[in-house]
């Protein structure tokens, strides 16, 4: 681990009841990179992602061992406030999940619960976040419309804007484009390239071409273990392990 590492995971195990879902993962993630996580269904990649902002805390009977260091500080330390962790490590989910509120209120939500009152500041931040999420031009004239009326791709970009509004340092994305059509997917992918200038992005994807296209580093998970982690170029041309090669070339998965 060196000082530029944004997130360092050390010997992380995740248990759900008696079952171990993530096994002994150690990984270092540098700031302002896009890290793609690939692997077959049920390999624990989403579970792993959710340990990085303690979303698994919400699951009854879940238990975590090991450390997740965010800027060198363990987010599982009892002293650490989980609210603070989640404000620094934002998340976008597989299925877009805007609140049944107006577009504006969706983006403002994180600020409001954080205690921000100044209207001008909120308005400014809402616009900035929507611009960053490449949605502003499409919705600027109907910010008071219910977010549920947006298309699937727009909803997902709204969810990204909502996550950006509280200016996290890391953005976790759990298959953010899996429910989108190719055009909307392209938009989200372009967006990710833009966002990595400001954020560290960790993205779980089912789609290997997507990982190859957008990520700087790729992590390959299988059966809860981190099999291989390398630069994407390296991984997709000369993987170190046989099983990675087999997965990438589509022999299973």
């Amino acid at each position: 681990m060196d000082s530029q590492d944004k997130i360092s995971v050390r010997n992380l195990n995740f248990y759900y009841g008696q079952v171990r879902r993530v096994t002994n993962v150690t990984i270092d993630i540098k700031a302002n990179q896009v890290i793609g996580i690939i692997g077959p269904s049920g390999c624990g990649k989403s579970t792993f992602l959710r340990t990085l902002n303690r979303m698994n805390d919400l699951i009854l009977g879940a238990r975590v061992e090991g450390m997740v260091l965010l800027d060198g500080e363990d987010i599982y330390d009892p002293e650490v406030d989980v609210v603070d962790v989640r404000r620094r490590v934002g998340m976008v989910f597989q299925k877009s999940n805007p609140f049944p509120k107006s577009i504006y209120e969706n983006v403002a939500y994180g600020l409001r619960i954080g205690g921000v009152r100044e209207k001008d500041f909120i308005a400014e931040r809402v616009e900035k976040s929507l611009r960053d999420a490449a949605l502003w031009e499409e919705v600027k004239d109907r910010l008071d419309d219910n977010a549920m009326r947006l298309s699937g791709g727009q909803q997902q970009r709204l969810c990204i804007a909502r996550a950006l509004a509280i200016e996290p340092e890391v953005l976790l994305m759990d298959e953010p484009a899996s429910a989108l059509d190719p055009t909307a997917t392209l938009k989200v992918e372009e967006l990710i390239q833009e966002l990595k200038k400001k954020y560290t992005i960790i993205i779980v994807t089912h789609n290997m071409q997507q990982a190859a296209r957008i990520s700087d580093f790729t992590a390959f998970f299988m059966l809860g273990e981190l099999v291989e982690f390398d630069e994407t170029k390296q991984m997709f041309t000369k993987p170190q392990k046989k099983i990675t090669e087999e997965y990438i070339t589509g022999r299973f998965g």
Binding site: V83, R86, G90, M91, F99
Partner: peptide, 26 residues
């Protein structure tokens, strides 16, 4: 939907805020 609460928690809301601002309105 659980996804509403999850979104709220992921934005740093506590349980009370999630209940009052997301679940109740929904």
């Amino acid at each position: 939907p659980v996804s509403f609460s999850e979104a709220s928690f992921a934005l740093g809301a506590n349980r009370w805020q999630t209940l009052v601002r997301v679940k109740m309105p929904a």
